[in-house]
Design a protein around this nucleic acid. Structure first.
Lengths: 200, 200, 200, 200
DNA sequence: GGTTAAACGAGACGGTACGTCATGTCTTTTA
DNA sequence: TAAAAGACATGACGTACCGTCTCGTTTAACC
């Protein structure tokens, strides 16, 4: 135990009447590290504070709760998932999903995302933030793919929400059950269905 | 507040060297009630113990952790969701989904399920149990629908897993974001896609 | 709650390279107000700073700790307790005590004094200051009464310290137990004993 | 730092649904030790808890606040101050005072008592407990000395309170200013005055 | 028919985390 | 260069829950 003080040995005092970016960075890094090493179970403000060598009040001053911190941690390691529409929705979705899963597996982000979803189950505020701020932002690119396809007439415009939900749910299912590795084989078929022209 | 002692007023002593079904029932009922009233946030062994008028060791003796208890609570209110295959997979899925959502909304089950998923994010054992015991069992009927469709040649047999994942994820997304009410409109379109014959 | 900014609405900036008397006054007034309203329990540098609309460093620049500030607050509301020796020590002590208790009850001074004594129990420096600077100064007049009585031969000169301690302790006991109101009846008898000619 | 776990190395689990005397003793001993070594300034429930190897809730379960704990600490090292009335009040008071001061100096009790008085200045409940429970109990013997003297006709019965206050205040003054050593010389004269027959 | 064994309720135990408050130090900005 | 503003690391506050433990009681099963 007795988690090492991370890389910021000496001390990180105030730099005046404004936020200290070093503290912010140390806290985010500590949160990321805790999630990577211990997962959601070990993710506590106390643990992050200890690890970051930061005071708890400093954390609560800038993040109103755990979910808030989790969202920023997630945002901080923003995946560089390019969404360059190729004109083929199914293909674009496969590319996007593959990139996303790679991001989730290769970084602590997968665990962060799982933590975020878990947190939202106990904290209504967190759920609201997830639904109204986090998701819309995160989904902008993917929604763009669907919109473009609808604009091309490949899919009906009034099915965008349903297809987005299918897409999202598919990803959530695999990440929440920690089966990203095993589930990759299902991606192409699933994306083909999500991108299919309306049957009948 | 100050949760009343539930319906077991006098006292529920031991009935000898074997499990007391009354205690078991009281604990499950208390857990259900706590989840219904307070959600996952208020779900603690302490709260259940208080509510049930049961000792904590009695709970830990029969359920090894929270997830274990949650699973039994969820299992206890098993939805009677009939899956009478009509020969039309899309239709069957809509029926099944509608029934499932009704079950999730009309009982504390939705909250229980959300709690279960959240718990699985912090407890690897819980996740394993969810994946290997709980889900296969729960999915038997739905999987049957897909198998029948595959047998009929309506969908390819090697896409059953992908389509099941889409189905599951779709439901999870709506329940986890507490949008079951608002999301109902998406059901038919989504099910049509999940049940679609392979495009091309 | 949410302590209003006191009477110094606009702002009190620096007035150059010297102490700003307005700030000093505002801080003392705020400290007095906090003590009056919340007592020692609510007396914190933070609270004073908020109330005075002053920065904490401004307080720490001029007062090295809470005790220091408390002493100045107490000194600032110096009782005008005249000690006009009448030639009758007992009578003079009764007069002085009555005036002192009136001062303690009618102003926040009683609470300030209690705070000061409490503070001195955790801070050795404060105790030293109390003993070596504050008390001798405060006691000058009363000591004068005893000296005069000794000069008259009413009491032995070598008992001045003991009698002063009795006098002081008597007052402290009542103020520290917040019984000034109820204890007034004891004053005459006590003063008579303190001023008594040596028995035997 | 990292205060040793005191002498109770292995662990002190529950001994059933009742108070564990070992924990109680460990907590009292730890509180005493903290007071002896750090004084009131270092006396925090956290510090006591760490030192005792006890959980904070265990402390709060049995003592409702710091003052409560302080009072029990003080009571636990009960002075064996015999009050065997000799028939001479002044003499008895000198004996009693000398014993009391010896007790205060030779044990951590002096510091405990000072802490108790300081605590009572910030916590009204503590003050009430001090006034209504602690003092009357502690004063029983001394009050007995005064009553006996009054019964003998040595002092007026209606002056008992005033004289008790003088006695108490005298002791408080010296202990609160940490001058017990230096003040001993004043004891005889002071006690003679407190015990004096009513002058005039 | 007395003895043993196990489950029961109760609740205390040592811990960890919660979210808030105060400490005293620090820096920047403003005047 | 003082003053305000307020961020900073630290650490105490009092509470909730964790999972374990021991109690004393109650009953059924065994001898």
């Amino acid at each position: 135990m007795k988690a090492a003080k991370a890389e910021t040995s000496p001390r990180r005092a105030s730099i005046g009447a404004r936020r200290n970016p070093a503290s912010q960075a140390a806290i985010l890094a500590a949160a990321r590290a805790v999630l990577a090493e211990e997962g959601y179970a070990g993710f506590s403000i106390d643990a992050v504070s200890r690890r970051a060598g930061a005071g708890k009040p400093t954390i609560y001053r800038w993040w109103k709760n755990r979910a808030d911190l989790l969202m920023e941690v997630y945002a901080a390691e923003k995946a560089v998932i390019e969404a360059v529409p190729s004109g083929d929705l199914a293909h674009d979705l496969v590319v996007h999903t593959t990139a996303l899963w790679g991001f989730w597996c290769g970084t602590p982000s997968g665990r962060t995302f799982r933590a975020l979803l878990a947190e939202a189950q106990s904290d209504p505020d967190a759920l609201a933030a997830l639904r109204e701020k986090f998701l819309p932002e995160r989904l902008r690119d993917v929604r763009g793919l669907f919109s473009a396809a609808a604009a091309r007439g490949d899919i009906p415009a009034d099915e965008i929400e349903a297809r987005l939900s299918l897409y999202l749910g598919f990803n959530w299912f695999y990440v929440l059950t920690d089966q990203l590795e095993a589930g990759q084989a299902s991606i192409p078929a699933a994306m083909r269905l999500i991108a299919a022209p309306t049957p009948r």
